[in-house]
Design a protein around this nucleic acid. Structure first.
Length: 642
RNA sequence: GCCGUUGUAGCUCAGUGGUAGAGCACUUCCUUGGUAAGGAAGAGGUCAAGAGUUCAAUUCUCUUCAACGGCUCCA
């Protein structure tokens, strides 16, 4: 007999070789029907796999993250079975579960797959699922596994096998399909009651663009039709929040073929938001001891040779323009220009930390397929600053920058983000990263220490650093779930030396400063794209392009409405009047849909009492009040940025 | 850049081998109405651009451009 410990601490005895599914059945038949997999001593197993020793057991259902991923991974196998039946000879690479479903990468040879094929595959999959074929696990020797895939002529699976040890290789079969797989899987295909193949994409083998491109099919599946419908509804809702849709609808920005891809034209409403953000940044930076500077958009080649941009970052830069035999580049980062401002005068330790700030315009030649609304563009305006400081000051400066982030995030109500410590990849030294292995490690340790000391939760990722040093990125997700770096805080040990930047220390010796690059508000483009989605277009009063709309009930009150508008404008409130000869209900509806925070309704009552009736977007009628007190309240709300 | 899909009025979308429609928005007129859609008329399109097939192309084919979903890459 073996002892099974359940999550509530209860210990039950079973005979050796009892499966999790059988244990579930012994507890309740209803429970057993929902069991997808089981966590046995912390490892996710098939629910049907016999347990031979004492173990702690957690039964996993659709509601557990591991349950979902097992479910999706099994659906990937089901899809592979369907693909193989329709496209014989197909070779598979890997088919994992992802955040919202699964995919399988495959080599279809010369054949192409279309949307129509996806519909056919869905039908086939539903058919196969209904057969309730069990997923059968078998252990196999490496030699036999190699033999199996050699027979099949499948070089991809043979490649996978190379990295596996004999004795740890398992196959899974369901119906007519057998795959090399570590598992685990759901008990049988009948669990899959609803599914949708969402899209076809090319994906480079092993994620390397030099390799052959495989066909990737994405899909998602559910234990019931209801859940699929809910998922599809959720996708529809997310689309409504998409900054590209809102940005167009609200007159925030536009693009034009003749101007160029990824080059944003900010319309008047978007420009208002830009100006409000810059005002916030200027106030905040002035209080934190920054100095504002302004630098040109282009510079000579030699500047970027010194900075390291040309050796390490050239593929992201626009090609040069040549004038009188000299090459000029559009700047992709502001740092070299700021370094030259530092270098323009002899510096003393007394001036440090020196903080130079600029909402700098940068141009980056992003590959066309990478462009994405406002989130990924080719001309961007960065909330940039460079802090030149001594080693001793570093930790304090670094913490202050992090505090500034949190201050901003509080203003915008940003609470869903992840701080990521982005490190270099030693394999790419001298290619993507400046070749200073020792300095990389030292600096990374320094940043990690500063993070730990300030109790900031973070994750570490290798291969995401800047070419000149490690960074802390603040990761956010767009409405459609794509991940972006919103803000960044970087340490640069390289450019100070490359530019021979120096200050005179207390001992009257020249010393190279450390440089912190920081952009807490990221770029206007990405930040406003994010804010559009974050607020679903309903900006807080201080950011709203239009703050108040005056709605006269009929033309008779237009004159009084005009005086109300004048008073609002005199108080620097962004207001307009709806002078169409429409009924008040229509004016209210249109203004609500335009997401204007306040409406002032002006009729006979208001005119006689010299008042305004206030209506707040999304909240409805707030009653009548004196115009002066309304303006005063508005000004307070704007000032507090609440 | 690569794989796949798409491109018809300002927006959302129908449609066809014989050169085009709807709703909303817009303009004008009627209406002057009290908290989410009053009525009527009108204007608006080289059907993304170029080439080919055809008596005839917005429709079929090819190329280019752009957008979208991914891959790679990044703020």
């Amino acid at each position: 007999m073996i002892k099974i410990t359940l999550p509530d601490g209860a210990v039950r005895e079973y005979r050796e070789g009892t499966s999790s599914l059988e244990i579930a059945k012994s507890i309740s038949e209803g429970l057993a029907r929902k069991i997808i997999a089981a966590s046995v001593n912390g490892e996710v197993w098939d629910a049907t796999r016999p347990i031979q020793t004492d173990a702690s057991l957690k039964l996993l259902t659709w509601n557990d993250p591991e349950g979902k991923s097992t479910f999706w991974h099994s659906t990937a196998h089901l899809m592979a079975e369907a693909v193989e039946s329709i496209f014989p000879g197909v070779k598979f690479w890997v088919g994992p579960a992802v955040e919202n479903g699964f995919y399988y990468d495959m080599d279809l040879g010369d054949r192409q797959i279309t949307e129509e094929d996806l519909r056919k595959l869905e039908v086939k999959m539903a058919e196969l699922a209904a057969k309730q074929n069990p997923y059968i696990r078998t252990s196999i020797s490496k030699a036999d596994a190699i033999h199996f895939f050699q027979e099949k002529g499948d070089e991809y699976k043979l490649d996978l096998l190379e990295h596996l040890q004999d004795g740890e290789i398992t196959f899974y079969s369901q119906g007519s399909f057998t795959d090399l797989c570590r598992g685990p899987h759901i008990p049988d295909t009948g669990f899959i009651k609803a599914l949708k193949l969402t899209n076809i994409a090319g994906a480079y083998w092993k994620g390397d663009e030099k390799n052959k491109q495989l066909t990737r099919i994405y899909g998602v599946s559910f234990p019931s039709k209801k859940e699929l419908d809910e998922y599809l509804l959720m996708l529809e809702e997310a689309k409504k929040r998409d900054h590209r849709k809102l940005g167009k609808e609200m007159g925030i920005y536009t693009t034009d073929d003749e101007v160029g891809q990824g080059l944003i034209l900010w319309m008047p409403n978007g420009t208002i938001i830009i100006e409000e953000l810059e005002k916030l940044a200027k106030e905040t930076e002035q209080a934190a001891g920054y100095h504002r500077v302004v630098t040109p958009h282009i510079a000579k080649e030699s500047l970027y040779l010194t900075s390291g941009h040309l050796p390490y970052y050239q593929e992201s830069m626009y090609p040069p323009m040549e004038l009188d035999g000299t090459k000029y580049y559009l700047k992709s980062m502001n740092c070299p220009h700021h370094h030259k401002i530092f270098a323009a005068e002899p510096r003393s330790y007394k001036e440090l930390p020196l903080r130079l700030a600029e909402y700098g315009t940068c141009y980056r030649y992003e590959q066309s397929g990478e462009l994405f609304g406002l989130m990924r563009v080719r001309c961007l305006h960065m909330n940039d600053a460079h802090i030149y400081c001594s080693k001793e000051d570093f930790a304090q400066e670094f913490r202050s920058v992090n505090e500034m982030y949190l201050k901003y995030f509080k203003i915008f109500g940003i609470d869903k983000y992840v701080m990521r410590l982005s490190l270099h990849d030693p394999a790419n030294l001298g290619k993507k990263y400046i070749n200073e292995p020792q300095l990389w490690l030292e600096t990374e340790a320094m940043v990690r220490k500063a993070l730990l000391e300030s109790n900031t939760p973070f994750v570490e990722v290798t291969g995401e650093g800047a070419f000149y040093g490690p960074k802390i990125d603040v990761q956010i997700w767009s409405a459609i779930g794509r991940e972006f770096t919103l803000a960044t805080n970087q340490v640069d040990f390289a450019q100070g030396r490359r530019f021979k930047l120096e200050y005179t220390n207390r001992e009257n010796q020249p010393e190279t400063p450390l440089i912190i690059h920081r952009a807490p508000l990221g770029t206007h483009e990405r930040f406003i794209g994010f804010l559009l989605e974050h607020y679903a277009g309903k900006f807080p009063l201080w950011l709203a392009p239009q703050q108040v709309k005056v709605l006269p009930i009929s033309d008779k009150y237009m004159e009084y409405a005009q005086t109300v508008l004048e008073s609002l404008k005199n108080a620097d409130i962004r207001a307009a009047i709806d002078d169409r000869s429409e009924k008040i209900g229509k004016k209210i509806r249109d203004t609500e849909l335009a997401r204007v925070p306040f409406m002032l309704i002006i009729g006979e009552k208001e005119m006689d009492a010299k008042q305004v009736s206030v209506r707040r977007q999304g909240k409805g009628d707030l009653g009548a009040q004196e115009l002066d007190s309304f303006i005063k309240e508005l000004k307070t709300e704007i000032k507090l940025r609440s």
